[in-house]
């Protein structure tokens, strides 16, 4: 098997006193070593022309499951979301439909989240906005994280943007969050000392055990994941990866996870929303 020529990138190292000696050791031994192609990394970012959804790497059967709404299990969540859209959960009798109208009016919303929450002056993700509507406008209790109802509502709203291009929020606060997210993406973490970028920028398309590494775009969330036998959020997926490299996973709702999502949306700008996607 051939492996492409790679060149080193200088932004993936955590700052630590270890790396200074390590750098000198590396320089010293570089003189003795024969070329070791695996020891370097690929170019930093995925060229536009090579950008692709994880959909492209899936087996035909899984693709077919996503393509047809009648076979896509996530559509069950969407159906539940449609019921919730009309419900009046709180004491003030407000439903989603009362303010927003028919749900098709939410087209394009999910394609540009996370975005600036003007009230708090901080970025907010779609889940956070749904919860805000629940507690502030409907006077109802927030849904538990990863609950079926919350995922159902997020899937329903996400579906309204299906086929539309991802448009990252343009405001400076969201952009600053995306910049922090990019730093996290490139930071080696955990006992296994791996960054997101080392797999999803440098080695997508290759095999990690039985799994084909995708580019890691947020085009289809919430997704129905065969491994989960259910629908889950992007944050759940990010936490999976963090646990996989034996890192301390950020808690659900953490700013760091929203920053990462902001960066992923920026990285996937222009790609097509697939929600609700199916993944292996």
């Amino acid at each position: 098997m051939m492996f492409p020529e790679r060149h080193s990138r200088n932004n993936i190292e955590p700052s630590s006193d270890f790396y200074l000696p390590a750098f000198f050791i590396a320089v010293l031994f570089a003189i003795n070593l024969s070329p070791v192609p695996f020891m370097a990394v690929r170019a930093a970012e995925i060229p536009l022309a090579q950008r692709q959804s994880g959909f492209e790497l899936m087996q035909a059967e899984t693709q077919a499951m996503q393509r047809n709404d009648l076979s896509n299990p996530a559509m069950l969540w969407v159906r539940e979301g449609e019921k919730l859209w009309d419900e009046k959960p709180g004491e003030n009798g407000q439903s989603c439909v009362a303010c927003h109208g028919v749900v098709t009016g939410m087209a394009g919303v999910a394609a540009s989240y996370p975005t600036l929450d003007t009230a708090s002056g901080r970025p907010i993700d779609l889940t956070g906005r749904i919860q805000q509507c629940r507690t502030d406008r409907q006077r109802a209790s927030a849904w538990p994280r990863e609950s079926r109802a919350l995922l159902a509502m997020a899937s329903l709203i996400g579906l309204q943007s299906r086929g539309m291009p991802i448009m990252p929020a343009p405001d400076p606060i969201s952009k600053a969050g995306a910049a922090r997210g990019k730093a996290l993406f490139n930071q080696r973490v955990g006992q296994l000392n791996l960054s997101c970028a080392q797999c999803h920028d440098d080695n997508w398309g290759r095999k990690l055990g039985s799994a084909t590494i995708p580019q890691g775009h947020p085009t289809g969330y919430p997704i129905y994941r065969l491994e989960w036998q259910g629908v889950g959020s992007l944050q759940r997926r990010l936490r999976n990866c963090l646990a996989g490299v034996r890192a301390e996973a950020f808690p659900f709702g953490a700013d760091a996870l929203i920053d990462l999502e902001l960066f992923l949306m920026e990285r996937a700008a222009g790609m097509t929303v697939e929600t609700p996607a199916v993944r292996p």
Binding site: S8, R9, I12, E13, P14, S16, D17, F18, Y19, A22, F23, I25, A26, F29, L33, V36, F38, M39, A40, V41, Q187, R188, V189, G190, Q191, L192, N193, L194, Q198, D202, N203, L242, R246, A247, E248
Partner: peptide, 19 residues
């Protein structure tokens, strides 16, 4: 050998982040 190596350090505990 190479700071950019993908391979996890199997017997190092220093200099790791968010373990």
């Amino acid at each position: 050998i190479n700071p950019a190596s993908l391979m996890p350090p199997y017997h190092r505990i220093e200099g790791l982040v968010e373990v």
